[in-house]
Design a protein around this nucleic acid. Structure first.
Length: 855
RNA sequence: GCGGACGUGGCGAAAUGGUAGACGCAGCGGACUUAAAAUCCGCUUCCCCUUUCGGGAGUGCGGGUUCAAGUCCCGCCGUCCGCACCA
């Protein structure tokens, strides 16, 4: 039982959670329409089965902000849902013989229960799960809208194919060229797949980053790099002695033959065009493929390039290697100047044109290559005075003037780039162009547990969209996972339909959508949930963009870029009026924990070890344990703590308090036993304080001022998401109250403290509010206001420095004139002793802060 | 290689260019108790001196700007994260 000695979370937590549910306290839209709106959103979880401590930290932060905004009188939208499609459900189906849907829905139920125990101020009436037809049906409609607008297309594309599991693998599932599950050698297979035209928005997505002032620099930089805009010149080298054309080699004479008249290259440094000494093409370049037909040595070289790995470490050490094709190309600015053509292992086929021209003097990679194959190295950019400086083993990439370059000589780099582009365009051998690293978004997944792509393949009509009145295309429930492959393909009836256009026999698309599509618009559906359409435009205009989005840095690129794209695409087709979904983004740090290992290197769980003096021992055996690094919690290292267990033991409030304490929220938070115990003790200390309101008279001016200073500070800290600082301020106030003698001021201070901690420790706060006779729920109470007049002290402590070194402090009335302060400073014994008779040359007085005496 | 962040006590950390170390954890001492736990009070950057008073050093390293630098500038060193043969 909770009494005036001890706060019992076991009784209080559940009671207040039930009360919030009963009153629908956190339902959006209660209490008037003209209040300011706040949309606070945390990245919704994948229903893996259990919440982990990282979720607890993430949602606690959002919860404090949401509760704080409510107390400030805002209408708060703070929803929760489930990113419920994805592979783990299918893996569970294969391993345990359960149905992905049942597995997922059970997990959702379990995790929802866990979240409820933490007392989050969520509007559960808007809960959604992406695996339910009432969500993904609307997603199918949106996909069709984007298709109608020309933003969806189909194209042949290579995938990683696991021949044993009969399935497509994501890159992360291919380990050393083998399938992660089957261990089979993975093949590249060409499949016709669905793509979203994210590249149409490349420039907008890049430009838009500039307006996202409240996003972390890091995330913006990562997206910028990912989009990867490069500007330069695309141009052509005429091939001097063209090889046989494709038609002559292959009797079928396909239309997509490579043009063997020229090689097209892209460069961001057209200013260095006179420094060219070779042309290199990718092993996958069609010209290379063509030449290899008649050249076994080249064929072998290409095969070898294909085999070598592409991991960062391998690329680091891998040599630049080339194969001289014997072809020669003419320099576009001097047809008599011939350059050799190599097939080179460092040229990427999927960037630019798959071919480059090499300028060894000004590109390190080209220089390495040129030295190896003894190609000429000509300096064409130089800083003043170094025109003739030889290039040794380091390429010069800095600024300078152009040299050895005929009509470009003497120009600065930028001017020379423009001049070459202008000349190329005038003469017709090239044009200024922009190349992006960003690729279109392939959304086809050959899997069951995802949103069915709403198209039908008709032998007569081709690819036909499912008419909107036939949506949702619902996943069949009667599927089995005993045989590898996509169950949708072998389902006896599901895919067999009549063509909506001609009525003839046709087949459904059996691919499903990438789950990143599901999470690209859920924040819209949270804001507005009509039955007959994805969302209501006017409601979206009211709530979007999300005021504060909080989640992990791991989503810096994919999820956040796709959601930005999807939002812009919907705006582009006129369905919504916002361009950017998340006005402010916060990426929180991980929860880490100490690790331990035994002598054999086996990981030990926290409950298996115990500290004896300065050393750790294994409780069961008494053998020594080795304390390792503090690392991200992971099952394999056994350093996880289970949220349910700690909520049982310490209560939701102590756990929440710990999540907010000590570490700045963007940094890692080390979980410690002593830390959570400290939080629990503070919860108890607050409870004792709330029980100490006794009738008392009189003012305590110093405490009054402290209260108002802390109100202002805590509010500002929560606004800035600096929860660790808000926590420190609250400790400060609690300390001050405990030291103060009983007075009316002290009682006010305690009641104020109660409201200040309410967003953080809501169960305790409700209990205290009810104890102290508060009206209604503290969740609905107003945030205390700081009186600006109370923020100023009437006395200030002034530092007295001699040449910047502190010698004494003096306490004076606030606003004392400078000459008075100076006089008092000089009157100090300590100052006189330090001066030791030296003459003061200059005195600097910063009002109400310090005096600096210069000798 | 490119980009981002960071470097402050035993630990997590504070600090609009103006008294470095707020607040918490751990530790030490004391009170209460038969005892322990809990609680309360005090100390707690380091070094020197000392009974006290005091003095010196100090925010990764080296310079600079300034009356004054953890904070600003230049150059290093180190750690973490992301991307990477991107032409």
């Amino acid at each position: 039982m909770t009494d005036n000695k001890r706060f019992s979370h076991l009784a209080a937590d559940a009671r207040w959670q039930a009360e919030w549910d009963r009153q629908e306290t956190f339902r959006t839209g209660r209490g008037g329409a003209d209040r300011p709106r706040s949309y606070v959103l945390e990245m919704f979880p994948y229903p893996s089965g259990r919440i982990h401590i990282g979720h607890v930290r993430n949602y606690t932060m959002g919860d404090v902000l949401a509760r704080f905004r409510r107390m400030q009188g805002h209408d708060v939208l703070h929803p929760m849902g489930w990113d419920a499609f994805g592979m783990p459900a299918e893996n569970a189906a294969m391993e345990k013989g359960v149905h992905p849907g049942g597995w997922t829905r059970d997990n959702i139920a379990a995790m929802k229960k866990q979240l409820k125990r933490l007392g989050f101020a969520l509007d559960w009436s808007r809960e959604l799960a992406t695996c339910e037809p009432d969500y993904y049906g609307h997603e199918q409609a949106l996909f069709l809208d984007l298709y109608a607008a020309g933003l969806v297309y189909r194209k042949e594309s290579a995938v990683n194919w696991d021949p044993v599991d009969q399935t497509v693998l994501a890159n992360e599932q291919v380990i050393d060229g083998k399938g992660w599950r089957s261990g089979a050698q993975v093949e590249k297979r060409k499949l016709s797949q669905w793509f979203l035209k994210i590249t149409d928005f490349a420039d907008d997505l890049l430009e838009g980053l500039g307006d996202l002032k409240d996003w972390p620099d890091k995330v913006r930089a990562m997206q910028e790099n990912w989009i990867g805009k490069s500007q330069g010149l695309t141009f052509r080298f005429e091939i001097d002695n063209p090889p046989l054309t494709l038609e002559e080699i292959r009797p079928d004479g396909k239309a997509n033959h490579p043009d063997t008249e020229y090689i097209e290259v892209f460069s961001t440094r057209p200013d260095t065009i006179f420094g060219a000494s070779f042309v290199a093409i990718s092993p996958e370049h069609e010209l290379a493929q063509l030449l290899a037909v008649d050249d076994d040595a080249l064929d072998a070289f290409i095969e070898e390039c294909r085999k070598t790995g592409t991991t960062a470490a391998e690329l680091e050490t891998q040599e630049k290697r080339g194969f001289d094709t014997g072809l020669a190309v003419a320099h576009p600015l001097d047809p008599a100047w011939k350059l050799p053509v190599f097939v080179a292992n460092f040229v990427l086929m999927d960037y630019g044109t798959g071919a480059v021209f090499g300028v060894p003097a000004h590109d390190q990679r080209d220089l390495d290559f040129a030295r190896k194959y003894m190609l000429p190295v000509t300096r064409v950019v130089a800083e003043p005075g170094s025109e003739d400086a030889p290039i040794h083993d380091e390429a010069y990439t800095g600024p300078g003037r152009i040299v050895n370059s005929r009509f470009l000589d003497g120009m600065e780099v930028e001017a020379a780039k423009a001049a070459v582009i202008a000349r190329a365009e005038a003469e017709g051998w090239g044009e200024g162009s922009t190349v992006w690293r960003l690729r279109d978004w392939g959304v086809s997944r050959q899997r069951y547990w995802g949103t069915p792509i709403p198209f039908i393949h008709c032998p007569a009509c081709g690819v036909v969209p499912v008419p909107k009145d036939q949506l949702p295309v619902v996943l069949p429930e009667d599927v089995s996972f005993e045989i590898p492959g996509n169950p949708l393909v072998r389902h006896p009836s599901w895919k067999h339909v009549n063509c909506p256009q001609c009525g003839g026999k046709a087949e459904r698309e059996t691919d499903t959508l990438d789950t990143f599509v599901d999470s690209s618009w859920y924040f819209l559906r949270f804001a507005s949930q009509p039955e007959d359409k994805p969302f209501d435009r006017a409601e979206i205009a009211k709530w979007l963009p999300v005021g504060q989005y909080i989640g992990g840095i791991e989503h810096a690129i994919l999820h956040l870029l796709y959601a930005r794209f999807w939002t812009r695409a919907l705006a582009h087709i006129g369905m919504i009026d916002v361009q950017e979904p998340f006005a402010s983004l916060f990426t929180q740090g991980m929860v880490t924990h100490q690790t331990w290992q035994d002598a054999a290197g086996k990981w030990l769980a926290p409950e298996q070890v115990e500290k004896r003096g300065d050393d750790w021992i294994i409780i069961e055996t008494g053998e020594p344990a080795e304390a390792g690094r503090v690392e991200k919690m992971s099952k394999s290292k056994k350093n996880v703590v289970d949220p349910d267990a700690i909520v049982d033991q310490y209560g939701a409030d102590a756990v929440r308090w710990f999540m907010l304490s000590d570490s700045p929220p963007e940094r890692d938070l080390p979980w410690t036993e002593s830390g959570i115990e400290g939080s629990w003790r503070f919860v108890q200390r607050l409870w004792r304080l709330f029980n100490k309101v006794e009738s008392a008279e009189g003012e305590d001016a110093a405490l009054d001022r402290k209260v108002h200073q802390i109100i202002a500070a805590v509010g500002g800290d929560i606004e800035a998401l600096s929860f660790n600082k808000a926590v420190a301020r609250i400790y400060e106030l609690a300390n001050a109250i405990e030291k103060a003698a009983p007075s009316a001021s002290r009682n006010v201070a305690i009641r104020t403290l109660l409201r200040l901690v309410a967003p953080m420790v809501p169960h305790l706060a409700e209990e205290g509010w009810s104890l102290l006779g508060g009206h209604g729920l503290i969740a609905d109470a107003a945030w205390p206001e700081a009186d600006p007049a109370m923020l100023v002290e009437d006395e200030v402590t002034i530092a007295v420095q001699i040449k910047g070194k502190l010698r004494d402090t003096i306490t004076v009335a606030k606003g004392l004139p400078n000459d008075e302060v100076e006089r008092l400073a000089l009157a100090s014994d300590k100052v006189q002793r330090s001066l030791d008779g030296a003459a003061v040359r200059k005195v600097i007085v910063v009002p109400d802060r310090l005096v600096n005496l210069v000798i």
